[in-house]
């Protein structure tokens, strides 16, 4: 049983481009997150290493992951919006980088 869409919206020619970009950024972040989990799990004392501003690796890496999520999110939004506008103006289908 289909209830129909909650909101109607137009076809998005940039969707394939955005999906590929999203997956790429997800993989980059996923690898960095995995590195964080691996160090915490197998060499937690390494996290005591001083890195910057007197902060240890644990805090630097942790804050870094939060800031990286924000930065990647903003980059993703900016690139996607640009592509959407570009395709809207040219009326073509989304190419894939």
């Amino acid at each position: 049983m289909d209830h129909g869409p909650a909101v109607e919206h137009e076809d998005d020619p940039a969707s394939e481009y955005k999906t590929r970009l999203g997956v790429k950024l997800f993989i980059i972040y996923g690898i960095i997150y995995a590195g964080f989990v691996i160090i915490n799990t197998f060499i937690p004392t390494f996290m005591e290493t001083r890195i910057i501003f007197g902060l240890n690796l644990a805090v630097t890496y942790g804050f870094g992951l939060i800031l990286l999520a924000i930065v990647l999110g903003l980059v993703y939004n900016s690139v996607c919006t640009k592509k959407e506008e570009e395709l809207k103006n040219t009326g073509t289908d989304g190419g894939v980088s």
């Binding site: 950024l25 997800f26 996923g30 942790g62 992951l65 939060i66 990647l72 999110g73 993703y76």
Partner: peptide
Amino acid sequence: IGYLAGWIVALF
């Protein structure tokens, strides 16, 4: 960190 990182999956 885990809660926030989860949003990356949601967004991307």
